[in-house]
C-alpha cells in the first residue's frame, strides 16, 4: 500500500473556492444554512409552544412525550422519510433537524420560565406590570440563560448532524466524507471534520457571548461581590 499523507494542503488550496458546486467554501455555506436555519425555526416554534406549556401545564406531558419520541429516531431515518416528501432539496435536512432542535428547545423554554423566582414575578406584578409586559420584560429576560444553554446544545448537534445528510445527497461539508471514502483519500475527510468542529466551537462561543450581552445583570452581581 502506498503511503498517503494524512493531509495534502495543495488539495485544500485548490478546492477551497474553485467555483464548482463541490468547492469547500460552497459546501461550508450550504452547511451553515442547513445547520442554523433549524435552530432559528426551532426557537420560533419552541417559544410560543413552551409558553403554552407553562400556561396550560396539561399540555406539557404530551408535547414532551412527542418530541422525545422524535429525538429517539436516528437522523438518517428522518432524512430518508422526508426524502420521499421533499426530494433532493435542503428542506429534507432542515425539517427533520428542526424537529431535533425542538426536543432540546421546548424543555429549555419551559425550564427557563420555571426558573424565574416567584418573588421576582410578584414584584413585577406589584410594580404594575400587566401579564404580557411582565412576560416580555421580566420573565423572558430572566429565562434567557436556560434558553440559551438549550440553544447551544441544539446548535452544536445541528452542525454535526447536517453531515449525515450527505448520505441522501444534501450534507454540506458531509459531502467531503463521501468524496474521501470513495477515493480512499484522507484529506477531504479531515478537512470536513475540522471545519465542522471549528464551526461548532465558533457558534458555541458566539452564543456564550450573546448570553453575556443579554444578561448584563449576572455579571454586575458577580462584580459587586
Amino acid at each position: 500500500m502506498k503511503s498517503e499523507p494524512l493531509i495534502r494542503w495543495d488539495w485544500v488550496t485548490r478546492n477551497w473556492d474553485n467555483g464548482s458546486p463541490s468547492a469547500i467554501s460552497t459546501l461550508l455555506e450550504s452547511h451553515m444554512l442547513m445547520a442554523f436555519l433549524p435552530v432559528l425555526l426551532g426557537l420560533l416554534v419552541a417559544l410560543p409552544l413552551g409558553l403554552a406549556c407553562v400556561r396550560w401545564p396539561r399540555l406539557y406531558q404530551p408535547t414532551a412525550g412527542l418530541v422525545n419520541v422524535t429525538y429517539a429516531l436516528p437522523s438518517l431515518v428522518l432524512f430518508s422519510i422526508f426524502l420521499s416528501l421533499t426530494g433532493l432539496t435542503p428542506a429534507t435536512v432542515i425539517v427533520p433537524l428542526t424537529f431535533f432542535t425542538l426536543a432540546v428547545l421546548i424543555p429549555a423554554v419551559v425550564d427557563g420560565l420555571a426558573s424565574v423566582p416567584d418573588h421576582v414575578r410578584q414584584s413585577a406584578t406589584a410594580m404594575g406590570f400587566r401579564p404580557l409586559r411582565r412576560l416580555l420584560q421580566v420573565e423572558l429576560p430572566v429565562a434567557v440563560p436556560v434558553v440559551l444553554a438549550g440553544t447551544r446544545v441544539a446548535t452544536v448537534s445541528s452542525i454535526s448532524l447536517v453531515s449525515v445528510g450527505a448520505l441522501i445527497g444534501q450534507g454540506g461539508l458531509g459531502n467531503l466524507f463521501i468524496d474521501g471514502w470513495q477515493r480512499q483519500f484522507y484529506t477531504p475527510i479531515i478537512v470536513g471534520i475540522v471545519l465542522i468542529v471549528v464551526l461548532a466551537v465558533l457558534a458555541d462561543g458566539l452564543l456564550v457571548l450573546a448570553q453575556r450581552l443579554l444578561t448584563p445583570w449576572s455579571r454586575a452581581r458577580r462584580d459587586a461581590r
Binding site: V156, S160, G171, F177, G180, V197
Partner: peptide, 12 residues
Amino acid sequence: ARALPTLGLLVL
C-alpha cells in the same frame, strides 16, 4: 462527542 460528525469519524 456532540460536535464530532459521526459520519466523518466512521469514514476516517
